[in-house]
Amino acid sequence: MRALSFPLYLSLLAFLALPVRAELSLLNVSYDVSRELYKDINPAFAAEWQARKQARIEINQSHGGSSKQALSVAAGLEADVVTMNQSPDIDILVERGALVAADWKRRFPHGSAPYTTVSVFLVRKGNPKGIKDWADLARPGISVIVPNPKTSGNGRYTYLAAWGQALQKNGNNAAEAQKFVAALFKNVPVLDGGGRGATTTFTQRDIGDVLVTFENEAALIADELGDERFEVVYPALTIEAAAPVAIVDKVVDKRGTREAATAYLNFLFSPAGQQIIARHHFRPRDPAVLRQYAAHFPAVRTFTVESALGGWAAVQKTHFADGGIYDQIVEHP
């Protein structure tokens, strides 16, 4: 007796062959605010890939809080590439299960970060409180909106920007810096969970004299709500936040997508990719593109976590770990 009829055999074979014949796809696991950016990047890259390879490619996106996304990838979400807003969220993938190669920062130009942004102030139109620089944020009677540094990368950068500039101003005196940051955080009435929440508090609830946030978020607010209600103030010295990207080695080797994933991330550094990045108010790395959009990106003196604060591992340990300086500041105001 024949176990299976011939047509059944055929359909079974076809079914088994399906996954192989399915078109090439990549999963990009990213943070929250990059949603609009990758909505423009992905079709542009797919078109370029089509022209070069005569093959279709599909890019799937997953967005969420940066650290939560990193945890999902560590727990088994099959991301071909990760595009985050702070390097600890990629370092964790090196530590957990060696999903990403330890030298990921050297795989692509500019420390594998295709764009940066800086922390700026958004104040109400006409700047009624005369907020010009960091020192003004610690003045009594000023209300400052900052997202929670414990839950938000945006808040962490704000905290570190305040800390780093205070260090420079006070000749690297950490005690003075702590005093300054403590005074600043005493002026924070609401600690929202994320950057978008802080934006809502400042713009919709009319709470606070100044919102400290990323330049791209400030530009987005101006785009969405019109320029007549708010204006951006650039402090004399601020932090530069680089958005790092990496290939998830274990996943691309398993899925056979290394070539496509590499091309995808390289596209971010190409002139075409940099153009899209600049249009989304992120500071491009390409000097030509940066010049083209110079009006949107005023020159500002910056430092980075690596250049001024000893790197993320040290910062995490001294500032944000339980019992660290941030906890001391908020628990004993």
Binding site: S67, L71, K150, T151, P189, V190, L191, F320, A321, V330
Partner: peptide
């Protein structure tokens, strides 16, 4: 408002610890 010691709920504390990979 999530002010430490005043209006932080326990689930938020858990989330903050997760954010720090703790």
């Amino acid at each position: 408002g999530n002010t430490p010691l005043v209006s932080e709920i326990t689930p938020l504390i858990i989330i903050t610890k997760l954010e720090q990979y703790d």
